[in-house]
Design a protein around this nucleic acid. Structure first.
Lengths: 226, 226
DNA sequence: CCCAATGTTAAGAAAGTGTTAAATTAGTTA
DNA sequence: TAACTAATTTAACACTTTCTTAACATTGGG
């Protein structure tokens, strides 16, 4: 099991490593909110232990960005100090799944983590993305329109997910570039080419087109039968 | 669905009946640990709701006897009071599958129960992995395709299990590496070699191949006869 | 009509993958 | 412990696919 710890207190970090590593858990650690978030973005953790008070970006903000911008549902367990009980509520509202008050028992922490992970894997009914007759399963990469099976390149799948997930939201080129490539987008306007390839597959073989250009604004996907 | 309630508080019992019976659940009830245990021994319940504090035999003991002496794996959901947080842990160690803190929301209780039941019925079938004519038993390492017996190296069996368990999900190289090696994967791209060896055994001797590469995305296993 | 934004295309660059074999490591047995 | 065997990792190479770049074409709003 992969655990991400976002915590600035060295003692706590040391304790966690000491307890969990021998049990066969695999741990990663970030010392502040920003780097924690970027680690979390890799999306290969089963659960995140998140301190409420953090340098650069506090736990609540981290959690909100995790759910909002990154659209990740990795379960989050929030660590709070005893004297900030009110924050518990905020913690939940921010999208955390559980909290534990410092100082905490490691055994209890472990059982909470297990419960979170189990619950998460249960609700793994997972999001198939559907828009009209277009269906896309991000897990199997199975993609069909009107029952016809379609194939894309990696960036194509990414692009499609992004556009589909919040359809019919309009995404600016800039936004799309940052979602696709993060901090270091290509020098050229490569996105244009990718949109083009995507259309070749998604729209070209069919009567109506789903990928819409909004001049000067960006792109979006729509259900043409509405 | 058959639910056994082991609880001494009449109000709680009444609440449960009031909520669950109209939903079509069938409830039985015991007022103390000993009689609860003897009812549970009949082994025709899908799930047991067990209070921690009980006359004659407390919840932990009940649970331990249930698992230990009666050898039953009926899922148990433990009810605990808010001020006995330490007991949560004990609850898990005793073999309970989940816990919920009083006072609890009936809706949440219901969804927890459903999750427990589903998981239990899932894990029953667990042992053998089958995809088309490929059969693999992770316990005995018995592996056959079209009736032909096959052999792998340790990592090969692991890899196969992973790919098979969630077929036809596509696993990225990164994901596979982390599942196979956890935190410290080999420096080189050793996974490539392992996939190759796996194919030598699973696919090479047969007409159709089951291990599919999705360029840039990862690998998955499919049933070629679909 | 003009210009910036967008669509289209193709070629070279970069990244990913299959394959093989040797080197290294781990595990056994004498 | 040494010698042997099995398993894993590393490294090299060939090959394929995907991505980026850049040039040119087209479109649509001001």
């Amino acid at each position: 099991m992969q655990i991400l710890i976002i915590e600035d207190n060295s003692d706590i970090i040391a304790n966690l490593y000491e307890y969990f590593e021998p049990l066969g858990y695999s741990l990663d650690c970030a010392r502040d909110g920003v780097s924690g978030l970027s680690l979390a973005a890799e999306d290969n953790y089963d659960v995140i232990i998140l301190d409420l008070m953090l340098p650069r970006l506090d736990g609540i903000k981290v959690c909100q960005k995790l759910r909002g911008e990154l659209k990740l549902s990795t379960p989050v367990l929030m660590l709070t100090a005893r004297d900030t009980i009110d924050d518990k509520v905020t913690g939940f509202e921010s999208g955390a799944d559980d909290y534990i008050v410092k100082p905490f028992s490691l055994i209890e922490l472990e059982s909470r983590l297990k419960a979170l992970v189990r619950r998460a894997s249960d609700s793994h009914v997972e999001s198939k993305l559907v828009l009209g007759s277009l269906e896309f399963d991000p897990l199997t990469l199975n993609l069909t329109r009107e029952g016809v099976s379609l194939k894309l390149k990696p960036i194509g799948y990414n692009l499609l997910s992004i556009l589909l997930k919040d359809s019919p939201q309009v995404f600016s080129r800039k936004k799309l570039e940052s979602l696709l490539w993060g901090d270091l987008p290509p020098d050229s306007d490569s996105l244009r080419t990718h949109i083009h390839s995507l259309r070749q597959v998604i729209d070209k073989p069919f009567k109506k087109s789903m990928i819409k250009t909004v001049q000067g604004m960006g792109y979006c996907m729509v259900n043409p039968d509405e």
